[in-house]
Amino acid sequence: MKNEILWMILGMSIVTYIPRMLPFVLFKGKELPSFLQGILKNVPFATLGALIFPGILLIQKDIWYGLIGAVAAFIAAFLGANVIVTVLGSIAVLALYSSIL
C-alpha cells in the first residue's frame, strides 16, 4: 500500500470524524438557550430541503429526469407510502421514463 495514500485516508478520516463527534462532547448535559434549541430543532427539515434541491435536478443532464423522480417520490410520500416504497416507486417511474426515451 502506498504510504501517501494511507496518510491521506487517515487524515480524511480524522477531519471527517471530529465534526461528527464534537457536538456530543461539547454540549453534553448542557441546557442550551431556548432560541438555540429551536434553531437546532429546525435543522433537520432545513437540511432535507437543502439536500434535495438543487441536487435532484442535477442527477442527469436532462433536468426533467430529476423533476419526474422528485414528483413521483413526493406523490408517493404524500399518499402515505412508507420510505422504502417511495424510493422503489420513484426508481421504477424513472426506469420507465428512460426506457421510453
Binding site: I52, I59, F74
Partner: peptide, 24 residues
C-alpha cells in the same frame, strides 16, 4: 446504464419520503 441512472434518484427519493410526512 438505465438501472444506474434510475437508482441515482434513490437517496433523493428517500429524503423526500422522510420530509413529506412532517410537512403534512
Amino acid at each position: 446504464q438505465t438501472l444506474q441512472d434510475s437508482m441515482g434518484v434513490a437517496l433523493y427519493a428517500m429524503f423526500i419520503g422522510l420530509l413529506v410526512p412532517s410537512m403534512r
